[in-house]
Write a protein that binds this DNA or RNA. Structure first.
Length: 312
DNA sequence: AAATCGGGGCG
DNA sequence: CGCCCAGATTT
């Protein structure tokens, strides 16, 4: 096992100048995001990463700001009412992330004394933290070396190194190896590369209409050199259905309960969705997920509300 | 490996 | 109206 300062084996020789161009570009073009500010905390970075899982930056910004003002430390979120947490999550989507974030706060308090761990292995043990988020926290919260491979970096590497329009629908082992080989040896440089390569994907090397005229590595881009061949996986990508799905029904119910000041009776739930069987299935799913609390009366459910107390 | 899980904004 | 967004978890 080589020390962390040893360059990864198999790094192509052309990666170094490419990285240098991206890092220079980043120094002049990085967005001024609050979770990157000098006064950021490791917990604030972790919170931002969870919120940013499948949710665009512009929608996370106001929620993150209010969230961190209200619950600045893991211990604050751990002690909060889950109903308050779900309301503050608002419409970021995938509200189970909010539950896991609160569970994560408790785990940080219980296992790590309230300090976000530095070890990637410890981060991976936290609820709601997967490979990407663990690597991101290592790099962005602690300035450490990790392989940060999100949708942006995947696309940048697929184009610049792979010569294809878009990466495969799901991440491949070869992709991870290529990304690992591109990470600089030093901790500081690796963290900077993670931020810079992500930012390039977010601002220039975008999925829709890449701004190749503004790209610092256009001259080194394999996709450009190949004449911008179209996406080979295009036919196999299918958009996730939304209208009429359980997910939409769940969203309706959550929106109703977020706005309700008191428990909503079953008839109130019925009013938000036309098909009763689907509604009941969706509601049962929310209860099973811990996102909704069912109040029992003498003759069945009497009402529904967001969980008041932490479900410990 | 595939399915599930929100919601909104933009071309 | 399709597509995409700093993915994780479960099956």
């Amino acid at each position: 096992m080589p020390p962390a300062s040893t360059p990864p084996p198999g790094a192509p020789a052309e990666i170094a100048p490419l990285r240098a161009e991206v890092l220079t570009w980043f120094a002049a073009n990085a967005r001024d995001l609050p979770w990157r500010a000098p006064d950021r905390t490791a917990w604030g970075v972790l919170v931002s990463e969870v919120m940013l899982q499948q949710t665009p930056v512009v929608r996370v910004l106001p929620v993150w700001t209010a969230w961190m003002a209200r619950w600045p430390a893991p211990s604050d979120l751990a002690a909060a009412s889950t109903a308050d947490v779900l309301r503050a999550w608002d419409r970021l989507g995938y509200p189970r992330r909010a539950l896991r974030l609160q569970e994560c706060a408790r785990a940080v308090v219980d296992r790590h004394g309230g300090a976000v761990p530095r070890a990637e292995s410890a981060l991976l043990e936290l609820p709601g933290v997967g490979a990407y988020t663990a690597a991101a926290v290592v790099a962005f919260a602690h300035g450490g070396r990790s392989v940060v491979l999100d949708t942006n970096v995947r696309r940048v590497l697929a184009r610049a190194l792979g010569g294809v329009a878009l990466p495969a629908p799901s991440q491949t082992a070869a992709e991870v190896r290529r990304a690992a080989a591109a990470v600089p040896a030093g901790e500081r440089e690796a963290a900077a590369w993670a931020a810079a390569s992500m930012e390039l994907g977010a601002l220039v090397c975008t999925a829709r209409s890449p701004r190749c005229d503004a790209c610092p590595i256009a001259a080194r881009c394999a996709w450009r050199a190949a004449g911008y061949p179209p996406d080979a996986h295009a036919a196999r990508r299918r958009t996730q259905a939304w209208t009429g799905t359980d997910r939409q029904a769940r969203g309706r119910i959550m929106a109703l309960l977020r706005d309700a000041a008191r428990p909503v009776p079953p008839t109130g739930i019925d009013a938000v969705w036309p098909e009763r069987d689907q509604l009941r299935r969706s509601l049962a799913g929310l209860v099973a997920d811990g996102l909704v609390e069912e109040l029992r009366g003498a003759a069945g459910p009497s009402g529904y509300r967001l969980p008041v107390s932490p479900a410990r």
